[in-house]
Design a protein around this nucleic acid. Sequence first.
DNA 1: ACTCTAATTAGATATTTTTCTAAATATGAA
DNA 2: TTCATATTTAGAAAAATATCTAATTAGAGT
Lengths: 89, 89
Amino acid sequence: MRINRVFEALSHPVRRQILTLLKAGPMSAGELAEHFDLTKPTLSVHFNKLREAELVAIERRGTSLIYHLNMSILEEALGGLLGTRDQTP
Amino acid sequence: MRINRVFEALSHPVRRQILTLLKAGPMSAGELAEHFDLTKPTLSVHFNKLREAELVAIERRGTSLIYHLNMSILEEALGGLLGTRDQTP
DNA sequence: ACTCTAATTAGATATTTTTCTAAATATGAA
DNA sequence: TTCATATTTAGAAAAATATCTAATTAGAGT
């Protein structure tokens, strides 16, 4: 896990909102995009950052790409910072 | 708590390392600066972002400013995203 | 093969963030 | 008051990020 990518990904409110939406269950790029006042290409860039951080995984179904939340990475990253273990890079 | 400021503050590796250093106990700005290959003004900017996010508190002792970790804000912010805030055993 | 839908990548621009040097502020001691 | 130490603030340049429009890729159905 690249801890730096995870926290960088979490730093934007849109990306945190995407994760929150995905807590309810997997969703396609288009469905996610409906929740924001941004163009699809812009959202696509946000999806990509979340994917690089492994905070989401992708599954293709037909022409749609379904995004799934990867809760374990979130737990690892945040728990690592909260814990007493030395996290110095 | 401005959740956005907290995650923005956590997005930079230097600032996360500052928090990690402060886990061991309060430290002055100068002592913290010794751990980095950056100028003091640059570190000062990082301290300020952590302070605005209320992730650290400041106490003055003589000419030194002592930084303290504010663990509760960290727990609130990260716990809020994990959705584990209300799990009291 | 052609067309439609879903989504991404490319390229450009605007905004934000990081970092530095130089100058300023605050405190304590001589 | 003057000096020294610790740290911050100001201003500017460099680097990174976010956003848009236009073009491209991928799959499904006709």
